[in-house]
């Protein structure tokens, strides 16, 4: 999460991390239940608008961050109609015939729906991820939702580790290459190689973890049952307002789609 967090001062950045979770998660769950492509499409538009609007993420950055997922989803969307069991959709019209391959309209729509649903969910979670510092999120959870603080701060320390371990992995890789290790590929060679990386990586990770633990305990971490907080996390009026507005907006979209019959069945009402 820290990896794609974009520092900023926007309206969304200043909100309590948990209010964003409260606002987004129900909508996310609802989108997960849709089966038609149209409603997810609307939420894609809505989430994108929030990200480049009130969250002040530049369209360029936004595009760059979501591009890898978009590409893999597109690939999936193209392959899906060919891979899916044909008897599920053979009652729908045929769109295309390529020799033995038959493309049914139902299969295309189902593939699109699946992809758009995942994409919409991804964008909705981006609203949270792009604007929330992981340390704020964990601290807010510890303070407001009684998440155990020893665990929470342990996770925070682990986040410091990630880039260091990545760097370490890169170094070990280079070091081994310089030793003149066979460069040819193959599953066995690959597994052997990973095993060799694991030992130095683990020793240095353990050493580092030990040092961090000592440094934390030297500052009385975990010494008392309670902890006080310099920065209090709580819901302000802006947070409630944001949750309310976001929900209302989403409800409005859903209501419109329902009213005009574009919503399609939800997964639990749909009969197979």
């Amino acid at each position: 999460m820290q990896v794609i967090y974009q520092e900023g001062e926007s309206l969304l950045h200043r909100l309590n991390p948990l209010s964003k979770v409260v606002a987004v998660v129900p909508v996310l769950l609802f989108v997960a239940l849709t089966t038609d492509p149209w409603l997810p499409l609307a939420f894609i538009a809505l989430a994108s608008a929030v990200i480049v609007g009130p969250a002040r993420i530049t369209p360029g950055t936004f595009w760059r961050l979501q591009a890898p997922l978009t590409i893999s989803l597109l690939v999936f969307m193209i392959l899906y109609p060919f891979m899916v069991r044909a008897e599920l959709f053979d009652r729908t019209p045929v769109v295309l015939r390529l020799g033995p391959l038959v493309l049914y309209q139902g299969a295309v729509l189902a593939g699109m729906a699946a992809v758009l649903r995942v994409y919409a969910m991804f964008l909705l979670s981006l609203i949270f991820m792009l604007t929330t510092d992981i340390s704020d999120f964990i601290r807010a959870m510890v303070q407001q939702w009684r998440f155990p603080y020893r665990l929470g701060y342990g996770i925070l320390a682990a986040f410091h580790f990630m880039p260091l371990l990545q760097e370490e992995f890169r170094l070990i890789q280079a070091a081994h290459r310089i030793r003149g290790i066979e460069t040819h590929s193959g599953v066995r060679v690959h597994i052997e190689r990973l095993r060799r990386y694991a030992i130095p990586l683990l020793t240095s990770a353990i050493r580092r973890a030990e040092r961090t633990a000592l440094a934390m305990e030297s500052r009385a971490f975990g010494a008392l049952k309670q902890r006080s907080y310099f920065r209090r996390f709580c819901f302000s009026r802006a947070d409630y307002l944001f949750i309310l507005c976001f929900w209302l907006l989403c409800l409005l979209v859903i209501a419109l789609f329902w009213r005009y019959g574009w919503m399609g069945p939800l997964s639990f009402t749909k009969e197979l």
């Binding site: 340390s135 500052r219 010494a223 309670q226 920065r231």
Partner: peptide
């Protein structure tokens, strides 16, 4: 936050 960390562990007031 880093400086506050130790103080928080010892329950000092803000």
């Amino acid at each position: 936050d880093e400086i506050a960390f130790g103080l928080e562990n010892l329950c000092f007031s803000p």
